[in-house]
Simulated scan of single mutants.
Amino acid sequence: MSRLKPLLIALFLLGTTGCASLWNPRETSSCPAAPRETLNTPGCVKAMAALGYEYGVLAALAYEPQASPDLAPPAGVVEAESCTEIACDGAKGYQYRVFHRVRDGQVAEKIIAFRGTDGRGDWSTNLFGRKDQNRAALATFLRVRGDGTIPVSVTGDSLGGALAIQVSMCHPVHLRVALDASPRFYKSLCPGGRALPPPADADTKLLLFSETGEILSPTRWLGRNPDQLATRVDCIVGENTISQHDVRRLAACMIHRAVEGGSEDARRYRDANRRAFDRYLPDPQG
């Protein structure tokens, strides 16, 4: 029984995530952000983190403000809309925030940050396979996209990461950054019941970041995931798998890796938000 216990736990976690995709994660791709690197080498992790850390911060800010004290949006990004009620867009537990990236006084990008599990409504989705939040995320994306003249990106962690993946499976997005994502998405919800074809070659449009050893890792290994660039970061040591599944700490780790890679934008953000950085990741590994 002792040998079966880890497998049974992994199968339980997989069973509660409702995975429903037909694609495997791209774990061995070359690194588009650092052409001389392969995925998950130190140089690639740092380059990929520089591309995704701002969206990691916004995924953390999808929760109530008091959940992420001292954490500010990246420079030039402002909150434009939020839905933090018990039932947003008719879906139990579903919540999100919309941010705008502003350049020269104009909205250059819309970013939807889907909140992860944070209440009873979310657990009913997790445990009983309800698709209400997935449908709500697709409806939110279409409404925010509008006429399509402004690019829309999506982000989120855990259940929120799954919702971001759901949107990117069904509709073209400018960028999708999923963090510690649960494999809970359904191609049947896409127009015509068909998911978008996987990218022809490695690109940086569909990104997945996770902390090594966090609790949902087995579900992504055992399950099926959309074709995406999956980057594992290592900043948290001596913790259990649940405490490693923390979007604020993962976002801080992404900032740390981006600074290591020489990103001046990440360095400026870290220095301006040092209290938050030290709060969430006081002693990063590496």
Score class of each variant (00 low, 15 high):
204 T>N: 13
201 D>S: 15
68 S>E: 03
133 Q>K: 05
255 I>N: 06
124 S>K: 11
126 N>G: 06
233 V>K: 02
156 G>L: 08
152 V>Q: 05
62 A>H: 01
250 L>R: 06
81 E>R: 11
79 E>Y: 00
260 E>D: 14
57 V>L: 10
152 V>L: 07
92 K>T: 02
232 R>F: 11
204 T>G: 09
159 L>M: 15
101 R>F: 07
171 H>P: 00
185 F>H: 11
71 L>S: 00
184 R>A: 12
25 P>G: 08
108 A>Y: 02
262 G>S: 04
166 Q>R: 02
181 A>V: 07
178 A>L: 05
269 Y>A: 02
18 G>W: 13
113 A>N: 04
235 C>R: 08
59 A>G: 12
19 C>V: 11
2 S>M: 10
138 L>N: 03
230 A>V: 14
101 R>P: 07
24 N>H: 12
61 L>T: 03
63 Y>V: 07
121 G>I: 05
104 D>I: 07
108 A>N: 03
275 R>T: 14
222 L>E: 07
136 A>K: 02
36 R>N: 12
276 A>C: 04
2 S>W: 13
21 S>A: 14
258 A>Q: 05
162 A>T: 03
218 P>T: 09
253 C>E: 06
59 A>H: 07
8 L>W: 13
218 P>S: 07
247 V>N: 08
285 Q>T: 12
85 E>P: 00
92 K>R: 13
153 S>L: 02
123 W>V: 06
186 Y>A: 08
8 L>G: 09
211 E>C: 02
95 Q>T: 08
148 G>W: 10
209 F>P: 04
8 L>K: 10
47 A>W: 08
58 L>Q: 04
13 L>C: 02
262 G>Y: 08
